[in-house]
Design a protein around this nucleic acid. Structure first.
Lengths: 340, 340
DNA sequence: TTGAAAGCGGTACCAG
DNA sequence: CTGGTACCGCTTTCAA
């Protein structure tokens, strides 16, 4: 491994000068700068990130913590974040909780993430008490994606509003017996989204003066499989709903499959709406409320870079960014079946 | 940030002793070890990874390079790898090429990954000349997932065999006019899988003495959208195939959608088979050849840990691990339609 | 069993 | 504009 010393010896200058030259700092004669750059390139010198980290106190690492990399939403957030981070010389440390609360403690409790990275990106997670107090003490830059918390910058959509928009669409079509497939209790990692969407559902039903029998309020865990299960249960009810709103497209696709299984027409017998605009939703012709997931990731990364002082020129992002969503009407919603 | 010095002062011992005690090394009196551990816990001391890295030369970081995090296959590989790495104290640095060859040069060419990590996990990528020579010089532990290369440990399936198995299934059902949706040229990042599967397809057709008209040999990029497009083209042919084999489930699902669009019955008019056993495949009842993707990731991580000397007890993994695949017959394949 | 001190590979301050 | 040198925070000889 060629070190800075070799380069210095090669050009007959000090390490200090080489260091300055290579980082583009002022105070190096043009002639020497060129010689240094040439020598560094020729010798294949690349500064050791570890040594730089120790000397400067910055690792140029951002820790991204997600509940599940394999879920489309989180994969896409990461994809978006990584794009902008890399552009500014930051690498992405991935912490995949994979649904285990224990993993979360290990990652955030022992500071596996926080000790090593310059900043923290939490996606789909509500910071725990331990995490917020840690951050208060150390002032590590952090950002939340898809969650809000007092004092933490965040990039989100309005989850309650999303549900209201979806519900309004169904209500406008004339539906009254609307069921909900959410994911409130199922998630051990605290997650604010399900609660907000659920509130949106209940509020809308309430304002429309429609009753919500308990069996119309179903739990899921945001996976297709859980949607399938919920769909089966709901559609086999003596009085099944005429419309089902799901807190995610993956669950909605599961419900669609349940309907198909039971030979029910969509939207003839039952309408289905989701949230996300998953890459697959277009293909199953699912009506949904689109959220700009990749952009969420990009903005979160931008937030972080700003806190890290890496974006001197750019206008500061507000600490809470809330992105617009959009109702995408496709083929799975329609008027309720005529009464009989 | 409490450092080792604070802990040492606290217990009135030297940093050396504290360091030894905390890493469980022998040569520290039991009494002092306990006092040190207590003090460290009380002070909330966690060693700086950066400093440890500089002193030991090991970062405890593994760089995982993938073409696309958002693709199910790669997300799952990462998920599997991360699980075992974390268990052994390694963190995962994610490099998402996002389909850009330029990103690849930046990541691997400038050693963004290699300089910073102890080991390299390349998924779905064939090492370039520059990469192999770099590795030859520096001896960085590395492993390939879903690709093979002279001198590189790898964890794979037999991609050619996978295609042969899929084809045999179709041929056994009586199909003769079989088309292929692959992804050979489309991928700028060199990728060995498409080639192998394509060879399997051609070889099977050849052995069965079935002709492959050029228009039956279609390109895709492993996405659903490309499958849809390929499906439309193939099924609109004057003499359409009676079966279509796709190099991935995502493309197969696209083909299924094309069939639905054109009001063709599956498998009545056309049979479709994929490769992967994507999490969705069960739900669309797709016949496919399953590969154990998560296990691929886990084994790759194990390979790496072994090279890193972190698995002293365990029997060494062979340098090329090839996992079994399995034909999963579901509802999208059947006998060809009767001739007319 | 313990401690002093020399690195690890850079950065940054202070003189010159 | 350039060089000497004191760190950064921990590990690791080498002596005691």
């Amino acid at each position: 491994m060629t070190g800075i010393k070799e380069v210095a010896d090669e050009v007959g200058l000090s390490q200090a000068t080489v260091s300055r030259a290579l980082r583009g700092q002022r105070g190096v004669s043009e002639r020497n700068r060129e010689r240094i750059e040439e020598a560094a390139a020729r010798l294949g010198y690349v500064a050791s990130r570890t040594a730089v980290g120790l000397a400067t106190g910055r690792t140029h690492l951002v820790a991204a913590v997600v509940p599940h990399v394999t879920r489309w939403y989180f994969g896409t957030v990461i994809h978006g974040a990584e794009q902008v981070l890399r552009k500014h010389g930051y690498d992405l440390l991935l912490f995949n909780l994979a649904g285990s609360a224990e993993a979360r403690d290990r990652v955030l409790g022992t500071h596996a993430a926080t000790k090593r990275a310059d900043a923290l990106l939490l996606a789909g997670l509500q910071p725990s008490d331990a995490e917020r107090s840690w951050r208060d003490r150390h002032g590590t830059p952090a950002v939340l994606v898809g969650a809000v918390a007092e004092g933490w910058p965040s990039v989100t959509i309005d989850d309650e509003h999303v549900a209201v928009v979806a519900m309004q669409h169904l209500i406008d079509l004339g539906h009254q017996r609307i069921a909900y497939v959410g994911g409130e209790q199922a998630n051990t990692l605290e997650f604010s989204t399900p609660g907000a969407r659920h509130r949106g559902f209940l509020g809308s039903m309430d304002r429309a003066e429609h009753k919500v029998p308990p069996e119309y309020d179903h739990d899921g865990d945001f996976t297709l499989a859980s949607g399938l299960e919920a769909g089966r249960a709901l559609l086999r009810l003596p009085t099944p709903p005429t419309a089902i709103m799901c807190a995610s497209d993956e669950m909605a696709i599961g419900v669609l499959r349940a309907a198909r299984e039971l030979h029910l027409a969509v939207p003839g017998d039952v309408s289905v709406i989701g949230v996300d605009d998953h890459e697959l939703s277009e293909h199953v012709d699912l009506t949904t409320v689109r959220q700009p997931v990749e952009e969420l990731g990009r903005l979160a990364a931008t937030q972080l870079l700003q806190q890290l002082g890496e974006l001197p020129g750019s206008p500061p992002l507000p600490s809470h960014v809330r992105l617009e969503t959009e109702l995408v009407v496709r083929g799975t919603t329609g008027p309720p079946p005529p009464l009989h």
